[in-house]
Lab assay of single mutants.
Amino acid sequence: RELEAFAERFKQRRIKLGVTQADVGSALANLKIPGVGSLSQSTICRFESLTLSHNNMIALKPILQAWLEEAEGAQREKMNKP
């Protein structure tokens, strides 16, 4: 249940930020998480549509959570600048 809720929230917030699935995939490489490079657009799509295996969903959740927090933080900074 929690994974499904996160996937839905992730998709809504990604769209609100105006970021494509492909952008998310390539931006993950910038997070410098050990062992994590970029991901394909189709992987992000399959995460959002819950068609990845349960284990893959569990593995990707903290990575996508980290990206989302960073992206939303950058958005807030941009909006707070005069």
Rank of each mutant, 00 (worst) to 15 (best):
R1G: 09
R1M: 12
R1P: 05
E2W: 02
L3N: 04
L3E: 04
E4Y: 06
E4N: 08
E4W: 09
E4H: 15
A5Y: 05
A5H: 08
F6C: 02
F6W: 06
F6T: 02
F6K: 00
F6G: 00
A7H: 01
A7F: 01
A7D: 00
E8C: 04
E8F: 05
R9V: 09
R9W: 06
R9L: 15
R9M: 12
R9F: 05
R9C: 12
F10E: 00
F10R: 00
K11Y: 01
Q12P: 00
Q12L: 08
Q12I: 06
R13I: 08
R13M: 10
R13G: 13
R13P: 00
R14E: 00
R14Y: 00
I15G: 04
I15T: 09
I15E: 13
I15F: 03
I15S: 06
K16H: 10
K16R: 14
L17Q: 01
L17H: 02
L17I: 07
L17V: 04
L17Y: 03
G18R: 04
G18P: 00
V19G: 02
T20V: 02
Q21K: 15
Q21D: 05
Q21S: 08
A22G: 11
A22T: 08
A22P: 15
A22W: 10
A22S: 09
D23P: 00
D23K: 04
V24I: 10
V24Q: 01
V24A: 04
G25Q: 12
S26R: 12
A27D: 09
A27V: 06
A27W: 08
A27Y: 10
A27F: 04
A27N: 08
L28R: 02
L28E: 01
A29R: 15
A29V: 15
A29T: 06
N30K: 15
N30T: 09
N30M: 07
N30P: 14
N30E: 09
N30H: 14
N30D: 12
N30I: 14
L31T: 14
L31N: 06
L31P: 04
L31C: 09
L31Q: 10
K32D: 13
K32P: 05
I33A: 06
P34S: 08
G35T: 15
G35C: 15
V36S: 07
V36T: 15
V36W: 03
G37V: 07
S38H: 14
L39A: 10
S40P: 06
S40T: 13
S40H: 06
Q41N: 06
Q41V: 09
Q41R: 10
Q41C: 10
S42Y: 05
S42C: 08
S42K: 15
I44T: 01
I44M: 02
C45Q: 14
C45D: 06
C45G: 10
C45W: 08
R46V: 02
R46T: 02
R46P: 02
R46Q: 14
R46S: 11
E48Y: 00
E48W: 01
E48F: 00
E48C: 00
L50V: 12
L50N: 10
T51G: 11
T51D: 14
T51Y: 03
L52V: 02
S53Q: 11
S53W: 02
H54R: 14
H54T: 15
H54S: 14
H54V: 14
N55W: 10
N55P: 15
N55Q: 12
N56L: 14
N56P: 04
M57E: 01
M57K: 00
M57S: 04
I58F: 08
I58Y: 07
I58W: 07
I58D: 06
I58K: 15
A59T: 11
L60F: 03
L60C: 15
L60S: 04
K61M: 07
K61Y: 12
K61E: 11
K61F: 03
P62D: 05
P62R: 03
P62W: 01
P62Q: 03
I63R: 06
L64R: 01
L64F: 03
L64H: 00
Q65H: 09
Q65M: 09
A66Q: 09
A66I: 06
W67C: 00
W67V: 03
L68M: 07
L68I: 14
L68P: 01
L68K: 01
L68R: 01
E69M: 10
E69A: 11
E69I: 14
E69S: 09
E70M: 07
E70L: 05
E70W: 04
E70K: 12
E70Q: 11
E70Y: 06
E70H: 08
E70F: 05
A71W: 05
A71S: 08
A71R: 09
A71T: 15
E72I: 05
G73D: 07
A74Q: 10
Q75D: 09
Q75V: 10
Q75R: 10
E77R: 10
E77W: 06
K78R: 14
K78A: 15
M79V: 12
M79I: 12
N80A: 15
N80V: 15
N80K: 12
K81F: 15
